[in-house]
């Protein structure tokens, strides 16, 4: 059953509610209250629809673009890395092929045991500074970072006793951080990397094989001295007069350049 509002106070309360909702100061005459109310409600509905449309459209476009970019990324890297099953990366990221914007692997890199699986992986890379994913060298790592002069960070290098390191780090002069996993059992030369952190030097040494013989680790003397400062953490530029290698394996030759 309809209720008839005869008291002004009801009209005033309703008007105030509308003003509050629409954030306006419109005054409504009682004689024209109903039509004005209808107009106000209609305007509000239209305004709300327009705002909602614009908001929805903007959101929809943004969502569509994001989904499109993700799909494009997935399509490229799923195919390039064969859904994580690719194991032959010979020269894959060399020269100008990729830079920090375009190099963004979806899967860890796992090179196979063939002679060329991981060979020259980032050879002479001109634009990649960070490997971003773990890289496993099941066979050769020869030339992997040779002349990759901008490479600063090798996230993780997983090696085994068969992994070879011929010219792996030749001219890798920007390299600061490298983390190893596994066992290093072949000659390895990082003397071009004069900016290696102490953590990196320690990672290298702690993964040297204790059972191999006649092998050499070469490091930059400047890097080692800087990494093992006299006043640890002083960061005052002082270098140790003689660096300290804890537990350096007796079965390895250490060469400083």
């Amino acid at each position: 059953m309809a209720i008839v509002l005869t008291d002004d106070k009801y009209y005033k309360e309703i008007a105030q509610l509308i003003r509050t909702e629409l954030k306006c100061e419109t005054k409504y005459k009682p004689s024209k209250f109903v039509p004005n109310l209808l107009v106000a409600l209609l305007d509000a509905r239209v305004a709300g629809m327009a705002e909602g449309y614009e908001e929805g459209k903007s959101y929809g476009v943004a969502l569509g673009v994001a989904n499109g970019k993700q799909e494009a990324y997935d399509t490229f890297w799923d195919n390039f890395q064969n859904y994580g099953n690719r194991n032959h990366y010979y020269y894959a990221f060399s020269y100008y092929n990729f830079d920090d914007n375009t190099y963004n692997p979806k899967y860890p890199i796992k090179t196979g045991t063939t002679n060329t699986g991981g060979q020259n992986l980032f050879y002479s890379s001109h634009g990649i500074t960070d490997t971003k994913v773990d890289i496993e060298f099941e066979g050769t790592a020869n030339g992997a970072f040779n002349s990759a002069r901008k490479m600063k960070t090798i996230k993780k290098m997983i090696v085994n006793e068969n992994t070879t390191f011929t010219n792996t780090f030749t001219y890798a002069e920007s390299l600061e951080s490298i983390t190893f996993e596994g066992k290093i059992a072949k000659d390895i030369d990082l003397h071009w990397s004069t900016k290696l952190t102490r953590a990196s030097v320690e990672s290298i040494i702690s993964h040297l094989s204790s059972t191999t013989s006649g092998k050499t680790l070469a490091l930059s003397e400047a890097a080692v001295k800087k990494a093992y400062e006299t006043s640890e953490g002083a960061n005052d530029g002082t270098t140790s007069p003689e660096w300290i290698f804890l537990d350096f394996p007796e079965n390895w030759t250490l060469s400083l350049m």
């Binding site: 070469a218 007796e250 030759t253």
Partner: peptide, 9 residues
């Protein structure tokens, strides 16, 4: 082996 300072095994 090459180096300016070498710690022999």
């Amino acid at each position: 082996i090459y180096g300016r300072k070498i710690y022999l095994a």
